[in-house]
Every structure is written in structure tokens, then in C-alpha cells.
Deep mutational scan, measured.
Amino acid sequence: DLSALRVEEVQNVINAMQKILECPICLELIKEPVSTKCDHIFCKFCMLKLLNQKKGPSQCPLCKNDITKRSLQESTRFSQLVEELLKIICAFQLDTGLEYANSYNFAKKENNSPEHLKDEVSIIQSMGYRNRAKRLLQSEPENPSLQETSLSVQLSNLGTVRTLRTKQRIQPQRTSVYIELGSDSSEDTVNKATYCSVGDQELLQITPQGTRDEISLDSAKKAACEFSETDVTNTEHHQPSNNDLNTTEKRAAERHPEKYQGSSVSNLHVEPCGTNTHASSLQHENSSLLLTKDRMNVEKAEF
């Protein structure tokens, strides 16, 4: 173990290094160091905050020279020094078990990766560091076993998940096959086929009936047209017969005018059967003409 005197000496050296690497504005270890034209180094955030307070150039807090945003430059070497100082402080805390008085939040800088452990060898070769390295080497064999167990647990979990997924996939297939086998029997399929065939026959029977009705309507229309044509021909046949009657009536009127007047009046009210309204109107006109002729003949006879 380190003596108290040596611990104090190391602590004083760390404090001196820390004062050199402090920012003059925030009085902390410089984060993202930036250098000016006057070779003074500050935190990048502190300098941008200072420049944004005034429009135009501002003055350096140490030498009062003008500073602009374009004049600022990043210093990589200074950032490396800060990183190495942080590593020294971490090693000091691990070796002594004491917390550094002016320690900052170094938890963000710590890294437990194997590459980081290899890099620590180049920091300080001390008894405390050696003991700590031995402890780490002793704890390393235990870690692979834990990793193997965790991997086995994960693989077993994956296997159970896969088996569950396969079961879920197989179950719908089985149910679907069961439904297909038990849903419709052979008799049901035959009945469905016969039902479809009967429906098709009914459709075939319905369509000819409609065509037959249309044919019957067409035949009825044709018969009505033929009947009207026969009526017209009958009226045409009746007209010459009426003319013959008129000639006979004229002759009778010349011989017996008194008797014919009474008979002509009675004939006005008689309509021949089986004739249309057109034929009756023609008869009325003929009878009126005959009456006028008879009157003329009677007057001539009187004179």
C-alpha cells in the first residue's frame, strides 16, 4: 500500500496539472479547448457565450486583445492532455480508494470495455495498479461463464418462442383441414349439385314461356288486323247491294208514291245487322237523297 506522504505528493502534482488545464472563465477543466490569436485557451462554450454578448469583436479576458469567431481554432494537443489527466485522476481514485477533492464528473469518461483496460497499462506502473489488474484478471474467467449461461438462457427462450410460433402455425392448418373434411358430406355435395341443376332447368323453362307469350301476342295482333281488313271488305261488298236497293226503291216510288213515303220513313230507323257505323252513315245519306228525289217527283206529278 501507498504511504500517506506519497499520496499527498501525487495529489499535489495532480492539482498543479489541473490548474494549468483549467479554463480562466469557468475555472474547470477545459472541455473542447479553443485557442485565440494571443495563444490563450478557453472552453469553446465559454468563448461563444462571451462573443454573443456583444456585437462585433470582444476582448480576451487575459490580455484584452480583440477576439472574433473566425480567429478561434481548435487545439487537439490540449484536448489530449486533458484526457490523460482524467485517466490519471481515475487511476488515483481506484488505487487509494479516496475521492479526489477537486474531482469532476468523471463517470462519463469511464469505460469498462476490454480495449480501455489494455490502455490503462500505459498509465502508471504502481503496486495498487498491479493489484487491481490481478483482481480484474481473476474476475475475467467468471465473466465468460456468466456470458455462457446468459447465452444458453437466451437460446432456450428463443427455442420456446420458436416452438410456440410453430404450434400457432400448425393449429390453424389443422382446424382448416378439419373444417374441410367435416363441413360438407358427400350427400350434401350431391344435393347441392341437384339443386343447381334444377335451378338451371327452371331458368331454361322460364325463358321459352316468355317467348311463347310474345308469339301469342303477335298472333293476336295479326288476327285483329285481319279482322279489321275483313270488316272493310264487308262494308265494300254491302255498298253495291245498297245501291241495288236504292234503284228498286226509286222504281217503286215512281209507281206508288204514297205507299213509299211511309216505308221510307220506317227504313230510316232500321239498321242492317253486321255493318259498322260507317255503313250506317252512308245509308242515312242515301235515304235522305231518296226522300228529296221522291218529293221532286211528287211535285212534278201535281203540276
Rank of each mutant, 00 (worst) to 15 (best):
I123L: 12
L204V: 01
I30T: 09
S58L: 10
D119Y: 13
D66Y: 03
S241N: 00
I124F: 07
N267I: 01
C38W: 15
T163S: 10
K64E: 03
E302Q: 03
E84A: 05
D1G: 02
C60W: 14
V298L: 12
R70M: 11
L94F: 08
N191D: 01
V153A: 09
P33A: 15
N105K: 09
D1Y: 05
E249V: 01
Q125L: 11
I67L: 09
K54T: 06
E249G: 03
S122Y: 07
S228T: 15
D66A: 12
I25V: 05
Q201L: 06
S126I: 12
E299Q: 14
E285K: 11
K221Q: 01
A133P: 02
I20T: 09
C60S: 15
Q59E: 00
D188Y: 02
V13I: 02
K31Q: 07
L72Q: 07
Q11H: 03
P24S: 11
G159E: 11
P57T: 06
E84Q: 06
Q209P: 04
E9G: 13
S35F: 09
V34A: 04
T230K: 11
L268M: 14
A91S: 04
S228Y: 02
Q125R: 05
I25M: 01
L164R: 11
R255M: 09
L245M: 13
L21S: 05
C63W: 12
F78C: 03
E142K: 13
C196S: 05
K109R: 10
R162K: 04
T230P: 04
P24T: 09
Q73R: 10
S216C: 02
H237Y: 08
L86S: 03
E32G: 06
L2F: 10
Y260C: 08
E22Q: 05
K87T: 06
A4S: 09
M47K: 10
T275I: 14
Q171P: 13
Q205H: 05
Q154K: 01
T36R: 13
V270A: 01
S145Y: 01
T76R: 08
L164V: 06
H278N: 11
L81F: 05
H116Y: 01
S126R: 06
L48M: 03
C225W: 15
L155F: 05
E22V: 04
C196F: 00
I30V: 06
E142A: 07
Q80P: 01
D200G: 04
K19E: 11
A193T: 11
E187V: 15
V265F: 03
T233S: 03
I67T: 13
I89N: 09
L136V: 11
Q11K: 10
L27Q: 11
P61H: 02
R251C: 08
T175M: 10
K108I: 15
F106L: 10
D95Y: 15
K250R: 02
E214K: 15
K134I: 04
P33L: 14
V161G: 15
F92L: 12
G274S: 06
S139N: 08
Q147L: 00
Q18P: 13
G274D: 04
N131D: 07
S287N: 06
K44R: 08
E142V: 07
P33R: 11
R70G: 10
I20M: 06
I30S: 11
V13G: 07
L137P: 06
D184Y: 03
K167R: 15
V198M: 08
I89F: 10
K250M: 04
A223T: 08
K37M: 01
L117P: 04
N12I: 04
L51F: 08
K49T: 04
E140A: 11
G199R: 14
M296K: 08
L27R: 06
E302K: 09
E148Q: 06
C46R: 15
E258D: 11
Q53H: 08
T292I: 02
L204I: 14
A220P: 14
L50H: 10
R130T: 01
E258Q: 10
S266L: 01
A4T: 06
T96K: 13
E254D: 03
D294G: 13
N157H: 10
N143S: 05
S197R: 06
N102K: 05
I14M: 01
K87Q: 04
C273F: 04
R165M: 08
K31E: 13
V190F: 13
L81P: 14
Q201P: 02
E32A: 10
S152G: 10
C63F: 14
Q73K: 09
T160S: 08
S103G: 04
A252E: 11
S197I: 01
R174S: 04
T163N: 14
L5P: 15
S150N: 06
A224D: 01
L5I: 08
L81V: 13
S176Y: 00
R295I: 03
S79N: 04
K37Q: 00
Q209K: 11
I170K: 09
M17L: 04
